[in-house]
């Protein structure tokens, strides 16, 4: 622990790979995110921002999923 600082997915730069540690979201959205592969321990790559800056597309379990800022900044992980 303490090796790398935690950042949210939203703060990730294009090309960053982030290992998910926490999901600070509850309810249906949490379930949906888990189903899509945003599980703790999973590696997520930041793919690109949409033209207006939000949402951002991520690569997770080899698929590309776009999330809005509201959610992506509640998903935390370590930069690898």
């Amino acid at each position: 622990m303490g090796l790398s600082k935690k950042i949210s997915l939203f703060e990730g730069e294009k090309g960053n790979i982030i290992k998910i540690t926490d999901l600070n979201i509850d309810g249906i959205m949490r379930r949906r995110l888990l189903d899509l592969g945003f599980v703790p321990g999973a590696y997520v790559e930041v793919l690109r921002k949409s033209p207006l800056g939000d949402p951002v597309a991520f690569r997770v379990s080899n698929t590309s999923i776009a999330l809005r800022k509201e959610e992506s900044h509640k998903i935390l992980g370590e930069l690898v």
Binding site: M29, P55, T63, S64, I65, R68
Partner: peptide, 11 residues
């Protein structure tokens, strides 16, 4: 307020 949103971008 807008609720959650996920969108898949297929190849």
């Amino acid at each position: 307020v807008p609720t959650h949103y996920t969108l898949e971008l297929p190849p």
